[in-house]
Design a protein around this nucleic acid. Sequence first.
DNA 1: CATTATGAGAAACTCCCAAT
DNA 2: ATTGGGAGTTTCTCATAATG
Length: 372
Amino acid sequence: MNKDFKTPPKSAKKLTQPETLVQYFSELVGQPFILTGKTRTDGSNIRKLIASTLEKHSLPELAEQGEFEIVPPKAKGVPKIVREFIDTYIVTSGTSYNLQVWNRIPATETLLIKYESGESLKCNDVRFVFVRIDTEKNVVASVIILTPEYIEQKFGKFGKPTIKHQLLISGKVRKDIYGSEDKILSFPDSKKLSYQIRHDYEPPKSGMVEEPDIKHLFSIGLLKKMVAEKLIGFKLDAAATKNRGQALEKKVLELLGYEVNENDLLYGAFPDIRNQLLEVKVQDSPTVDLGKFSPEKEEIVIEDSNLTTFDVRYLIALTNPKTEIIEGIILSPGEKLGELFSYVSAESYKCQRAIPMSFFEKYYGKSVFNPS
DNA sequence: CATTATGAGAAACTCCCAAT
DNA sequence: ATTGGGAGTTTCTCATAATG
């Protein structure tokens, strides 16, 4: 694909009118298109097809370097064909098409491109180009251009984004921890917890997956002594459990005196060790995968006692990827994670919306824009 | 049924180094 | 200084399974 497609137009007003795009794309209808069956390849081929069609006509004037700014980090969520603010999608078989939009909430005013002039391009401005393929005849059945508002108004709102959170721990922080005396970086428990929890050890009264009782939670200080200090230098045997996260979880449970039950381990609860409001993570690259819950936003984790992601204690084991030996540990309540460590961000997510296949069937052999 | 989550696996990107 | 190859890593794209 031409490199110029990656640069935005000089102004939002210069974008080609959808009615004109419809004309451009009408020549594609009926043209052969052979599916490879490799999702990523097919998607890319569709994009190339649309891009080359656009290239046959005059494109919006290019914006100059420095005239604009791409708002999201790493241009996440910006449509693939920025020049025309188009994203392409391939529609094949099935009774319903699952539209999946990555890294932006489609029908919102969220900024994607900000111009010096004050103008901007927003999520709302993206044009969705659906190329329907007739899988029997291997030809383009139709090209349908839709706007996000149209999609929501016609088919309903997009589902709520399924967000995967990540936490970045910079090399510097890691080095600092390795360099420190006990190789443990810890912060005190959240206020809510601090008054009520235990600072001396007693054997656990309930199983690991039971709801925690604040009075029986061990303080971070205690966890540090009982678990973190013992873990330094420990080798995570990945082979045993096939999963280092679980290997660590098991070890932590043993250190705390819980009875380890294989089934409970596999049960992917949040936090991992619910009874201790403790989430255990292994980290060997700069990114820690936090999964669905993230302390970026305060969210209730345990209804009854009003405990939130801010109260959850995170134990992050920094391992040497070569040896699988734990060389450092971070022990912190959720509330401090985002604030003191680099940043909680760099998330990838998608929004989904099912569109019945009958909608595409209706426009077989046509190229249309927001049909009524 | 509708909605949300997981999975496969190749494209796209990044980084390093050598050749022009 | 710029280009290009290669290796390695990350991101994407679509399908489909799981869940409510």
